[in-house]
Amino acid sequence: MAFSDLFARLRKDEDDADAGADSPAQPTKALARFLAGLGTRPQPVLLDLGPVVGSNVTFFGEEVGCKILVEDLSKDIDRHVHQAKVDALPAFFDTRFPQESDTIDGILCWDIFDYLERAAAERLARQLTRMLRPDGVLLAFFSTADPRSAIRPTYTRHVVIDRAHLQYRPYKAARAKQRPLLNRDIQRLLEPLRITENVLLKTNLREVLFRKPAAASVAPSAAPQAGR
């Protein structure tokens, strides 16, 4: 093997940092409840804010019968970081989602809020609560560990093994996780959604399931603020 091939391979391994393909399955408590919340509608519309995962598309599409919308926000965050425009993220989220209000049955945020500062997180949360249909569900994970302990910033690709297990596959991120949110902050962040499950796992991950109250359609003032 030529040296160039060897170095290319090493560089690829470093870039991908996606060595979690054989990582063990981790239990999840909230996913089953999330799916149960979706199951009340004939063909629920699911918004996935994580990177596209083929097996997840198959799982949610074939097993659960969802229509899936994939909007990978980690790419948006990375792009803003690379362009040194992180400050523009809050305004970006105001116009990021073309979906109409009250049209989404379920939202998978995974751990995307961990990578956002408060202002950006609030603007994203406002859009998510706007899009979520009354009685719709939103699943988000929040890290409780100190992000400074991470040597190299990574995102996590959450692969659904089954209704009770996920596999976490880390991959390279341009930005590290931000300061962990407290319970109270999490609750306020996504108001008027109500927390129906709040589980702290042994992995220091907090799984929080939100539900939009039936009468909590967001006021028109919070609708998409394009052109602001």
């Binding site: 596209v52 995962v53 599409g61 899936i68 990978d72």
Partner: peptide, 14 residues
Amino acid sequence: IAEGAHFRGSVDMQ
């Protein structure tokens, strides 16, 4: 969808 593939949009399998 294979790993390493890019996809943005919606999937309707029903």
